[in-house]
Computed example of a mutant assay.
Amino acid sequence: MKKKLNPNYHKRLRGEASKSWSDLPFDLLNLVFERLSFADFQRAKSVCSSWRSSSRQCVPKNHIPWVLRFPQNNENSSCMLFNPEEKDKLYKTQDLGLEFAKSSCMKTYGSWLLMQNLQSNLFIVNLFTGERINLPPVESQFGMTKIQSPVFWIDEKTKDHVVSWARSKKCVVYSKTGDNSWNKIPKSSGCLDMVYKDHKLYFSSYSGKVKIFDFSGEIPQQIVIDTTRKSTACRQPSLSCEEKHIVPPLVILKPIDYSVHWPSIDATNIVVTVTGDVLKVVKVWTYWSRSWSFRLYKVYSLGFKQHEQVYSLGDEAMLLDLGITVLANDNDGIRRNSIYFSDCKNTNKVFHFSFETRKMERLHKFDCSSVQLSSSQWFLPSNSLRHD
């Protein structure tokens, strides 16, 4: 004989199930939050006050880069965001104010942007919360000067920060939390590119030298690089005969600029890998195919100066705009052994280059007819929203 159920049984089950969502053990919530992407993490913490409270103690995976797209007109103070895990979907940020609309983004770190206003002064702003940190004035100390290769770091909890940039080719300056002016780093002229990671400033000069400055103390200290290890490849990167697409001479009345047909070096950057190796990245433009290719050279590893060509990134992906590599998972929307970058000449476009296929492709063509966009940058969203 079947057991007769209480008529209120299903209602009681629904009530208990509803209640259980907010009463899940903290350890179990931790396991859930740690497996969520940045976007899903923000959605999950909105379920209830209990989940929001638990989320503040969790660190979800955040190694998936997003694309930040800036408006073209100065009256639009919001940005568009694209998450590779959610194809064909764009998000819009909150209104970040009039000064943001009239400023240009110099660099990103997590969910923070380093901005330069019309007076050439710098400030840091959080993309999601709108929180702002003013930096020492640039114009009053240096006059109208060109800011090159800017980098910065900020602690999400304490808001301690470091900002550094190059005064053209003259020197590199920096400012830390509490500074009222910019400080000069000795022997830092001729800066080509910089990366800041793990409290270290990686500096590359036009002469090919790589220097590392330790910022963990009160005053930056240069780290001595051992140059006794012999390089496996001492030759500077040059275009091979095969790549040059040699054209036989022609008898003509006026000269032809063959540089438009041959591959040419478009830019040289440095990138710090997950393990702390320093790579020199040579970006090559080929006119006839209208595409970029890349050559990588390891110039520093484990305290030693090196110069050997690298042909694969393995399980890492390079975010050239940020100067770093991240562990990649093809299933998460970012492909391993690849370079993600934006076009500095047409900054509304973002690209992907695969070392496996040696081919470049443009990523994610959106219908943005309602919003005119001027530039795009890759960035790694941080979890600063969990501290609200």
Rank of each mutant, 00 (worst) to 15 (best):
P137H: 13
N134K: 13
Q116K: 14
F152Y: 06
V138G: 08
V125E: 08
V163K: 02
E139S: 12
N134D: 14
A101M: 11
S140Q: 12
D179I: 07
C171S: 11
G143R: 00
S175N: 06
I154N: 06
M144E: 09
V173D: 06
L127C: 14
N183W: 12
H161A: 01
S104W: 11
Q116C: 10
M106W: 11
A101G: 15
L118Q: 14
I154K: 03
E139M: 11
W112P: 10
V173Q: 00
C105D: 09
Y174G: 05
L114T: 00
F123C: 05
P150D: 02
M106C: 15
F123W: 00
S140M: 12
S168N: 08
K157V: 07
M144L: 10
I185Q: 00
D155V: 02
D179C: 12
N180V: 12
I154S: 07
G110D: 00
T177C: 12
K176I: 12
K170G: 01
N180E: 14
L127R: 13
H161N: 05
S175A: 15
V173C: 01
K176P: 02
V172W: 04
F142L: 12
M144C: 08
S181G: 08
L118E: 15
T158V: 05
S111N: 10
W182F: 07
N180A: 09
R167W: 06
A101W: 06
K169V: 07
K146L: 07
M115Q: 09
G130Y: 10
T145V: 14
K146P: 01
G178D: 13
S140K: 13
F123E: 04
L114I: 13
W182Q: 09
S181Y: 11
K184E: 15
K184N: 14
R167N: 09
L127E: 05
V173P: 00
A166R: 04
K157N: 09
P150T: 01
G143H: 02
F123M: 01
K102E: 00
Y174W: 12
S164W: 01
L118M: 12
K146M: 08
N183A: 09
M144G: 04
E131Y: 01
W153V: 05
I185P: 05
T108R: 08
K169Q: 07
S168I: 03
W112V: 00
V172G: 02
V125G: 11
S120H: 13
I147E: 01
I185K: 12
S120T: 12
